[in-house]
Each structure stands twice: as C-alpha cells, then as structure tokens.
Amino acid sequence: MMDARYSRHTIAVIEDESHTRAIIRGLLRQLGVRSIVEAADGGVGLKEVIRSRPSAVLCDIHMEPVDGLTFVFNLRHFAVPAIAKIPVIMLTADAQRETVEAARDSQINGYIVKPVSLAMLKQRLDKVLGIT
C-alpha cells in the first residue's frame, strides 16, 4: 500500500516498548512513510519533536522517566507556536481510556487502542494529516 501521499511526511513515534515501536515502524513503512523519528520516553521525545518538526506524533501514555501526558503538556506550552500545534495521537491500552479522556484538555488529536492495526493507523493518520 506504498503511497506517495505519505512519503512527504515525517512521523514521530514515542514508545518505550521496543517491539511495539518496531511494529509501528513497519506499519508506517508499509503506508509509504519514509521519514520516521523514534524515542523511548517523553523527554527525549520532546527534544526530537522540536528538532525534527514531524507532521504528526504517535505517543504512548505510560513511559519512564517522562510519560506521555507530560510530553503533550510540555509540547503544547513550547515557545514556538508552529511546534506547539503539531498533532499528537496517543497510544493506549484499553483500560487507560479515562486517562485519555482527561488528556483531552491537553489537546490531543486522537487516540489508538493497542494493539495497533494497519487499518486503524491509516484512518487516524489520514484524519490528522488531512489525506482523503
């Protein structure tokens, strides 16, 4: 399903579990994304997002030492407006829905329940990247 529409976007993946990260990387490549930035916690993730200015961020909630909600908060309060507005999609296991509802105040742009499937990832990314 390699698609030229995705090849112009950079996507950031912030997830501490290496297998899940590898799977998501594989899914993104299948979609045709050529530029992928990765991090294993919210602190490094924030730095990488500022540095690489992705079109969207996929972010897990539970990570150490800096978790996903802290990452979103810090991102949304960053001094450069164009970076603060970067869309964020949270990755969550089923039981964490309450946390995700609470995180809506931090303005996340969507969430995906793990395990991530290709169809769901494509649907969410299309919505956030504005691909029809």
């Binding site: 290496s18 297998h19 590898a22 799977i23 990387r25 594989g26 899914l27 290709l118």
Partner: peptide, 8 residues
C-alpha cells in the same frame, strides 16, 4: 506477518 517482518 507484521511482527515477523519487524523482528529485531
């Protein structure tokens, strides 16, 4: 197949 293709 997805997991297999992205195994380390």
């Amino acid at each position: 197949r997805l997991a297999v293709s992205s195994l380390d």
